[in-house]
C-alpha cells in the first residue's frame, strides 16, 4: 500500500516537473493568440531562452542572470515576430516558422563559436543552476499519514521556477479576465475594428501581448537549460513548444483548461517513461509510442470538433489593416 502511494506521488511529482515549462509556453501562446497573433514560434523562443540562460549562467555563474538573459532574448524574438506580423502584416505562420528554424541553427552555431563545444554549452553547477530545494518542515511532517509524503514528494523539493510557474497561473488568469489590459487583449483578438474605433491602438496592444509572450517563453527556456538540465544541448526543446501549442488548443485558449491540458500531456509523458518495458497484466506490454502519440491524436480529434469544439479567437492570424 505504502509502495503504491509512493508510486502515485512520484508520478504526480514527475508530471509537475514536465508540465511547468509546458504551462509557461502554452500561456505565452494563449496571450499571443488572444490578441490575434498566431504564434507557432513558441518552440524557437523557448530554445532561444534555453540557450541564453545557459550561456549567461555559464559566463556569470548565476542562474538568475541566466533567467534574465533568457527573458530578454526571448522577448527580442517575440518583438521580431510582432515587427513582421503587426507592423508589416507579414504571414504569422511563416514568421513563427522562420524563428523556429533560425534559432535551431543559431544556438549550436554560437555555442561552438563561444565555447568551442559541439552544439552545447558548458555544464552548469552550483548557483548557476536552479536546483530543487526542500520546503520548510518537509522532513518533520513526513511522519503524517498521506499529507506528510504528499507534502514531501509532491509539493516540496522542486526548483524555484516550478513555484514561479504555479504563482504565474493565477496572475495570467487575472491579467486576461480581470484587468483593463486583459479586456482589451481579448477584444482585439476577436474584433480589432471595434477596439480601433474605441481609440485604442491595435498594434500597441499586440506588441504588448507579444512582450508578455516573450517573457513567458524565456522563463520556459531557462527552465529547460538551467533547471531541468545542466546546460544547453542542441534541439533541447524537442517539440515542447508545439506540444504547448496543442495544450493551448486543447485548453480552448482558456487559462485553467490549458493548465489541465498541460498536466494531462505531462502525465502521458511521465507514464510512458514508467511503462517502458513493463508488461501490464491482461494487456501485455503497451508500446510507449502509443502513449507518446496520445497528446497529438487528442488535439487533432478536438480540432476536428468530435469532442467539444476548439474555437480560436476570431481574428487570430489575420493582420489588422485599417480601412481608409
Amino acid at each position: 500500500m505504502a509502495e503504491a502511494l509512493i508510486f502515485v506521488l512520484l508520478m504526480i511529482d514527475a508530471t509537475i516537473r514536465v508540465a511547468a515549462p509546458l504551462v509557461l509556453a502554452a500561456f505565452a501562446g494563449m496571450v499571443a493568440e488572444r490578441s490575434g497573433v498566431i504564434d507557432i514560434g513558441l518552440e524557437g523562443k523557448m530554445l532561444a531562452g534555453a540557450f541564453a540562460a545557459a550561456t549567461a549562467a555559464a559566463m556569470t555563474g548565476s542562474a538568475w542572470l541566466g533567467l534574465i538573459a533568457a527573458i530578454l532574448v526571448s522577448i527580442a524574438f517575440a518583438m521580431l515576430h510582432a515587427y513582421a506580423c503587426v507592423t508589416h502584416n507579414g504571414n504569422q505562420v511563416v514568421s513563427g516558422m522562420a524563428i523556429n528554424i533560425l534559432v535551431a541553427g543559431l544556438g549550436p552555431t554560437l555555442a561552438i563559436a563561444w565555447f568551442g563545444l559541439a552544439g552545447q554549452t558548458p555544464n552548469l553547477e552550483g548557483p548557476a543552476r536552479f536546483a530543487g530545494f526542500a520546503l520548510p518542515g518537509a522532513d518533520v511532517l513526513e511522519a503524517l499519514p498521506l499529507a506528510g509524503p504528499l507534502y514531501k514528494e509532491v509539493i516540496s523539493g522542486h526548483n524555484i521556477l516550478v513555484y514561479l510557474t504555479v504563482a504565474l497561473i493565477p496572475v495570467v488568469a487575472v491579467l486576461i479576465y480581470k484587468t483593463r489590459f486583459g479586456l482589451r487583449l481579448r477584444a482585439v483578438g476577436e474584433n480589432p475594428h471595434a477596439v480601433d474605433t474605441a481609440g485604442i491602438s491595435v498594434a500597441q496592444l499586440r506588441y504588448l501581448a507579444m512582450a508578455v509572450n516573450g517573457a513567458l517563453c524565456g522563463i520556459a527556456g531557462a527552465y529547460l537549460s538551467t533547471a531541468a538540465a545542466a546546460g544547453f544541448v542542441r534541439d533541447m526543446s524537442a517539440g515542447k513548444g508545439y506540444l504547448a501549442l496543442a495544450a493551448m488548443i486543447f485548453g480552448k485558449w482558456k487559462p485553467v483548461p490549458t493548465v489541465l491540458a498541460c498536466l494531462l500531456f505531462a502525465f502521458a509523458d511521465a507514464l510512458q517513461i514508467r511503462l517502458q518495458g513493463v508488461a501490464i497484466p491482461g494487456i501485455g506490454e503497451i508500446p510507449v509510442q502509443a502513449i507518446q502519440a496520445l497528446p497529438y491524436i487528442l488535439t487533432v480529434v478536438l480540432l476536428a470538433g468530435f469532442v467539444g469544439k476548439a474555437v480560436a479567437p476570431k481574428s487570430s492570424g489575420i493582420p489588422y489593416v485599417k480601412d481608409r
Binding site: H88, N100, L102, G105, T109, A118
Partner: peptide, 25 residues
C-alpha cells in the same frame, strides 16, 4: 573548424524570414 552545417540552418531561417514574413519591407 569552428563551423558546422548549422550555419546553413541559420541561412534557411533568415531566408524564410526575409522572403516570407518580412517581404513587405
Amino acid at each position: 573548424p569552428t563551423f558546422t552545417s548549422d550555419v546553413v540552418v541559420v541561412i534557411q531561417g533568415l531566408v524564410i524570414l526575409f522572403c516570407g514574413a518580412l517581404e513587405n519591407i
